[in-house]
């Protein structure tokens, strides 16, 4: 095996390997839409965030417009504060409603943004005033059973 043939094959091998890494990054990992430093931050306070996790998508009308960057508990008010990073191309009105929703029956939880009619838009570091907490299944079941029991009591 002479030198140039070895060089050629190693070149093909390395090109294939690097191509595979690029393919994994772009096609499988979707690096193209992943820009960690861009975007502006918004805060949203919730009574209960349910199963929302860091890096969960933020969607508006079903389109991913950002990610949840940080979740912490306010030690005074006992509210959860979620910090969102929104892509700079999207602007939301001051009266936007943030709600925690679930994709499908068993899917992951995401944060939905629903813009209102205000003309002023939210700036970096602003707080979303109107929020809607996650639906906790146990509470919902409890309310349902309480309602049923009350209904049964009325009939008698």
């Amino acid at each position: 095996m002479n030198r140039t043939t070895i060089d050629l094959w190693v070149g093909i091998f390395v090109a294939l390997g690097l191509g595979a890494i690029v393919f994994l990054s772009l096609k499988v990992g979707n690096l193209a839409t992943f820009k960690s430093d861009e975007g502006y931050h918004l805060d949203a306070r919730f009574d209960n965030i349910g199963g929302l996790k860091v890096r969960a998508p933020v969607k508006s009308a079903g389109v991913v417009v950002g990610r949840v960057e940080k979740i912490r508990l306010d030690p005074k008010t006992y509210e959860a504060i979620a910090t969102l990073r929104i892509e700079p191309t999207y602007q939301f009105t001051k009266d936007t409603i943030a709600s925690i929703l679930t994709s499908g029956l068993l899917g992951e939880q995401y944060l939905g943004l629903e813009p209102g009619g205000d003309t002023a838009t939210l700036k970096d570091g602003d707080r979303i005033a109107k929020t809607q907490s996650a639906v906790v299944l146990e509470k919902l079941l409890g309310q349902f059973m309480f309602g049923k029991a009350a209904e049964g009591g009325d009939k008698k």
């Binding site: 091998f13 390395v14 294939l16 390997g17 690097l18 595979a20 890494i21 393919f23 994994l24 499988v28």
Partner: peptide
């Protein structure tokens, strides 16, 4: 690493 990436692809 190159072989592992090729394996995954």
């Amino acid at each position: 690493p190159l072989l592992a990436a090729i394996f995954s692809v």
